[in-house]
């Protein structure tokens, strides 16, 4: 750095200025995905599901109906039922929590998909284009509900799609059709006169992991969302059985 011609001389200040500009440009490019986020426009149709956990008996009929509807490979589930056991005898309780894709209004999986294979349809259903998906598993990481999995047969991401092939024919999803306790109500949550929107209006409903800001469209009545971490402050025995190969709920 000591020997240098006048012509070529690039002052330290100038260099730092240019380097700073280059870094700012790189950082700007990286910051774009978050900058582009805006409130989701209200859709004309937003299909959703209301699950009345009080009516669920934990029979897994929905899980089985879903498996047979899609021939879902062994070891993975589009829809599943979790058991939450808590308390010690005689004050013990077991509750059931049916789980599926939440078809969020702000789906994090759609934001991260590099090929646009995952997208939200006009009717609010989040679907995966099997021919575009490359199986990078980014959406599996981004989903806060662990609703996605890699289909071992197709090698692509897969999940619940509210049985689009059934609802396009005027039927209800397979899990709703089979539910023995009629715990599942399917419909358009944006239509004020639909059964689901009336029930959502008249009941105390919750969604899962609301703090994630994903705006889920699967609503629950009377769901016990206790978590195994709660033992640290409630002191009560809590065990969650996910009925999935992953023993821990995530």
């Amino acid at each position: 750095m000591s020997v240098r011609t006048k012509k070529r001389k690039l002052s330290r200040r100038k260099f730092m200025g240019r380097l700073g500009a280059a870094t700012a440009a790189a950082a700007g490019a990286a910051a774009l995905p978050t900058a582009a986020r805006a409130a989701a426009p209200k859709r004309e149709i937003q299909y959703g599901m209301l699950i009345d956990a009080r009516r669920c008996v934990g029979c897994h009929a929905c899980t089985v109906a879903c498996k047979s509807e899609f021939d879902v490979p062994l070891g993975v589930n589009r829809s599943w039922v979790e058991y939450t056991e808590k308390g010690d005898h005689p004050f013990a309780q077991r509750t059931f929590l049916p789980r599926l894709c939440n078809h969020c209004s702000e789906p994090p999986c759609v934001r991260v998909c590099p090929t646009g294979a995952t997208y939200k349809r006009r009717d609010g259903i989040v679907v995966i284009d099997k021919n575009m998906c490359i199986g990078c598993k980014y959406c599996l990481q981004a989903c806060p509900y662990d609703a996605r999995f890699l289909n071992p047969v197709t090698g692509t991401a897969d999940k619940c799609d509210f049985c689009v092939h059934r609802i396009s024919q005027g039927l209800v999803p397979a899990c709703v059709n089979t539910c023995v306790g009629r715990a599942r109500i399917f419909g358009d949550v944006n239509a004020s006169d639909s059964e689901i929107s009336k029930l959502i209006a008249r009941n105390a409903v919750t969604v899962l992991r609301k703090e994630m800001g994903t705006q889920p469209n699967v609503f629950y009545i009377g769901a016990d969302d206790s978590d195994e971490h709660d033992i640290h402050y409630t002191g009560q025995y809590i065990h969650v059985n996910t009925h999935r190969p992953k023993k821990e709920r995530r």
């Binding site: 990286a30 774009l32 995905p33 582009a36 934001r111 991260v112 998909c113 590099p114 090929t115 646009g116 294979a117 575009m132 998906c133 490359i134 990078c136 980014y138």
Partner: peptide, 12 residues
């Protein structure tokens, strides 16, 4: 397929 699309996904 990665090259058929450009979007704001960090991976893209």
């Amino acid at each position: 397929n990665l090259y058929r699309v450009i979007n704001l996904s960090p991976m893209s």
